[in-house]
Design a protein around this nucleic acid. Sequence first.
DNA 1: AAGGCGGGGTC
DNA 2: GACCCAGCCTT
Length: 399
Amino acid sequence: MVKEARAQRIASYVADWPKEKVTAFQQDFLAWYDEENRHLPWRESQDPYRIWVSEIMLQQTQVATVIPYFERFMAWFPTIADLAAAPEDQLLKAWEGLGYYSRVRNMQFAAQTIMEEYDGEMPRDLKSLLALKGIGPYTAGAIASIAFNQPEPAVDGNVMRVFSRLFGITEDIAKPSTRFIFEGVVRHTISPQHPSEFNQAIMDLGATICTPTSPKCEACPLAAYCLAYQMDEREKYPIKSKKTKVTPHYYLALAMQDAEGRWYLEQRPTTGLLANFWTFPLVTLDKKSYTRFKQQWEDAQTRDAGEQILELVAEDEPSLVEHLTEEVANVIWQKEVVGEIQHVFSHQKWHVLIAYGYQAEVSDDQTGWYYPTGWSDLPFPKPQQKIVEILQKQKYIED
DNA sequence: AAGGCGGGGTC
DNA sequence: GACCCAGCCTT
């Protein structure tokens, strides 16, 4: 049985760790944390809401990045009730630049659940936490231990790195099932009196000493306990398979301005990558037409740019064509390409050519047209910010 | 179990 | 430029 095999693996890892050793380990580790812990905004209280927000933000995001976002988020949405009631644009604006935007959408959904089912109070037990949208095994354990002082493991990448080195754990951390091994080992070692400090000590150690590359073992309070250190195998752990493949995507961004100085923006679909974010219209190209288009434009050939753009739009999704044909048709397109940006996501690389078009009239239907001063409330993803930067540099947009 | 989902950092 | 960091969701 799988469960038994797992239990055996766990038992073999902690076989060298009798009670006395575990106790000494906890004392050394907690003493270190007492001296060296980082002073962070969400550590100023045990408010479960603040802990929750910080843990969601800290997923795949570094502490230094999170701090200003956290302060602003708490100012904008001081309570769970405020979060539950926030308008979506403001919500995305609060998260703009942090990435993985479903995190904040799920958090709002969970906030609404807490308002309806728990009278606005964060539930304390693991099962209820786990049932909330966006709260998985790691975050549930983090909230239960940090906010409510329950001896629950909170296994994230830090824990897997630190504990794989400490115990010489050879399971592939890319496999979802490996989490159970680490949870078992943490349960064996976690301080029952100070689970909050214990779990946070792992996070601090992983961030400052037991780092992914070149760990500072000379400064580590746990070196005496560390199998990887003793075996001089610090670079061997954690063991991880997996390689990500990044697929290229090619776009033409249509930066259109009208006689009033407004720009045309559209909102992305409600699902998928960068859902509900705002960008200039993006026409999908294949690699060939992207290269050809760029080349032709750079060579300043005589063929009318607007005609080309219309063709490209016509080849694209019908919905976009329907939405844009009129605007595109009335725009006078500049023959030179304004610029090009690239942006790498975790699984996609975008190549975007920027076309600039001017519309002498003001269209009757004014939806979608924004002054730069008026679009500051709209959430822009990173590629859109890069495009705007180029337009500013070239003085298409005033700073 | 595998893939979608951002953005920042280091070397 | 290549590589590192990696939780939770949906399928």
